[in-house]
Design a protein around this nucleic acid. Structure first.
Lengths: 350, 350
DNA sequence: TTGTAGGCGTTATCAC
DNA sequence: GTGATAACGCCTACAA
């Protein structure tokens, strides 16, 4: 029942050649079709319910209009905010977004990048979930190289526009979040409010984002006369944050701590829930801070101190980078700053 | 620099014909290539970094492996939860998801559906944002037909698997949320807790989902001896809910009301924020309920009473429907129930 | 089991 | 300006 009308049908119906029909419909650069004929072709197309086959066009033109988007988890508010911006920007550029979720699995990541390659996508944006596993194994021998890095640079070499969001990827255009700067600023801000002894809700050891935030926070805290006296390492999720706080509480270290700092917002929210479940008041019994600035935060009480990351901007810039001239964008790392937002979960201590 | 190695290159390198190379690599149904040759071809492909061109394959096979997903706004927790399920299910079926956001604009919706058609997508899932505008204009003359309905049925006729999420679309496989049932159940539950006089935070008039929830709630409330004594109509968003509560408060009607019921969760959250901003305590000064059951709710205090919609299930079933045999799925409407979840925002009154 | 050749729907390079 | 016609990269009867 499919009315597979092709351009040939339209051409015949309009009484012109295939070539003319093609030109009349897409009005390519060599605009040279008589208006009268254009009208006739358009009318024929209309009458026949013609719809150009994007697949065939892509093949004939030798390029697609697909932008691959790889995120860890589209249900995560951080990534969905980024995705939203990516989709809008890509659409404005006339590109379709092909969405895939890596589910934080390097193997899936590789498979999806291969898919991007097979799709002959024009560009790909990959956000989050960078793991330092491969690098770590090599013990720093060649930290600039990992499976992901290799796959991305390979793609770039084949003419696919590539951009990474979050952690910069060596040799690949990246829009990098200044996790270290933000974490240090957070430490300073908390120190400024009188906090000295911190507990850290850390993410997985191989998670670069968590590592950067943790290390920078610790360094800044110490430099400012404070200290990180406890740390729990759990998954980078709500449940992880919940679990982390439970462990801190069970270990009885909360009493020795001025504030609990989570390496991302959803962990902080999980910790907040865990605190509530234990009848611990925030900030009464413990102060709490997160990292990210996800929109969910507007609904929680007390207001959660965090480091706001401009997620929309990340998405927009990544698409622009991915679509830019590879010659000039390769190896570009656009740093985007993040701002400490102090709220009621970490009131001044004095 | 693109190493545009084609299957021909591989075939030549392996010393076999194009056909054999093709069979060896995709192992199609007519599996008939000698293992030895398969190995040789695979080795050649490997050596040449061959990557099959999905575009060409799609064209030769006459079908793509693309599933179009249209949502109102991917940053909305309701839709991102659905999208997450759709992506996972589609991937399990070997399909790529092409994501687009309608931004609640019927014109965009139409354009995106046309894009789906040009892409020759194998299936399309459309979630949310159904507007009754077109139907309303016709004054019920032919309520079963609207621009969206027409576009979707046209797609279906061309062999594209179609499924709608939320509101059923006439003639199209749909997985429908039982908004009326859920709203009625919510009304009953609130009546059961002693609430009688309600204020409604309603969505736009032409929004089918809002309308169904509102109407059913009102009917059930009245049937149970209660009443809806006030209603504010605002956008179906957080800001809309905020604004709605502000208006109720400014109008001074909150005193005459036992509970405020929002037609969706994000509106309820906005209302909650507005209440806080006015130093109104929930549930002390006003009881509040929402609709949807988005995951964000786990982080708000007090726990928000809502009607939980199984978002994951919606996504999974929609993909299954869209991929099912059109002959049997056409016009299928799978109702999915939703469950009232009573929480602290609407404590028993007596 | 393997190879030959035609075709998928467009675009683009040529002549005319 | 317009029209043949060769690609584009792959699949798949049909033959061998």
């Amino acid at each position: 029942m499919r009315d597979r009308t092709t351009l040939s049908d339209v051409a015949r119906e309009a009484g012109v050649s295939l070539a003319t029909a093609s030109r009349a419909i897409n009005g390519s650069a060599d605009r040279s079709v008589r208006p009268e004929l254009v009208a006739r072709v358009r009318a024929a197309a209309e009458a026949l319910h013609y719809s150009p086959d994007a697949t065939a066009q892509a093949m004939a033109r030798g390029r697609t209009t697909t932008l691959g988007l790889l995120v860890h988890d589209i249900a995560d508010p951080y990534f969905s905010a980024i995705a939203s911006a990516v989709v809008r920007t890509a659409e404005a550029e006339g590109l379709q977004v092909s969405l895939a979720t890596t589910q934080n699995d390097p193997a899936r990541e590789a498979a999806l990048l291969d898919l991007v390659r097979r799709q002959r996508a024009r560009a790909v944006v990959i956000a989050g979930g960078r793991s330092a596993g491969a690098d770590a194994e090599r013990d720093g021998a060649d930290p600039a190289s990992s499976a992901l890095t290799d796959a991305l640079t390979a793609l770039a070499r084949q003419g696919v526009g590539v951009a990474a969001i979050g952690q910069p990827v060596p040799g690949v255009a990246s829009v990098a979040v200044d996790n270290a700067g933000g974490a240090a600023a957070l430490a300073d801000a908390l120190l400024g409010r009188g906090y000295r002894r911190f507990a850290l809700l850390d993410g997985p050891a191989d998670r670069v984002t968590a590592r950067d935030r943790r290390d920078a926070f610790e360094a800044a805290a110490r430099a400012g006369g404070g200290d990180v006296v406890a740390r729990e390492r759990t998954p980078f999720t709500w449940e992880g944050g919940h679990e982390g706080l439970d462990r801190l509480a069970d270990a009885g270290v909360l009493a020795e701590v001025d504030a609990v700092v989570a390496t991302n917002d959803v962990m902080a929210l999980g910790a907040l829930a865990a605190a509530r479940a234990r009848d611990l008041s925030v900030p009464g019994d413990l102060a709490l801070a997160g990292f990210g600035g996800i929109s969910t935060l507007r609904d929680v009480v007390p207001g959660l101190t965090t480091v706001a990351v401009p997620m929309e901007e990340l998405g927009v810039r990544a698409v622009r980078l991915a679509l830019g001239d590879p010659a000039t964008t390769r190896d570009v790392v656009e740093q985007v700053g993040c701002d400490v937002v102090l709220r009621d979960s970490t009131p001044p201590l004095d």
